[in-house]
């Protein structure tokens, strides 16, 4: 399989994630879609890494995994904090901030 296939797959996953963020309202699901987008980016980097025979990409992806994990932790922390205070967990309903 040539590298092009992997890149198209990454593009598809990236697009699905982006679409999901726009369409879904539940913050937990939105965070999941963010993870989709980040792993799509990781796939793209690994494809190029294989194409170039260069190991830098693999270290990059390892760092991306760490970053994704940290983002999830903080995001879910915010969700839990909001849930505790009975704030509706619906991003379309976050009207407190509409100017």
């Amino acid at each position: 399989m040539s590298i092009e296939w992997y890149l198209v797959l990454a593009a598809l996953l990236f697009a699905i994630g982006a679409g999901g963020i726009l369409v879904r309202r539940n913050p937990v699901v939105i965070l999941l879609c963010l993870e989709l987008m980040l792993s799509a980016g990781a796939l793209a980097i690994l494809s190029f890494s294989r194409m170039l025979g260069d190991g830098d990409g693999q270290v990059f992806v390892l760092i991306v995994l760490v970053v994704a994990a940290c983002e999830v932790v903080v995001g879910l922390g915010l969700v839990v904090a909001m849930f505790r205070r009975r704030i509706p967990l619906d991003v379309d309903e976050t009207t407190e901030l509409r100017g």
Partner: peptide
């Protein structure tokens, strides 16, 4: 405050994911 944090996280991470994909292409 909590809502602003979550909103910033979602949109900021969207930016990061987009940036990452772009970096992949620049790398390649």
């Amino acid at each position: 405050s909590l809502e602003s944090g979550l909103k910033y996280l979602i949109i900021g991470s969207l930016g990061s994911a987009t940036l990452l994909f772009g970096m992949a292409f620049v790398y390649g």
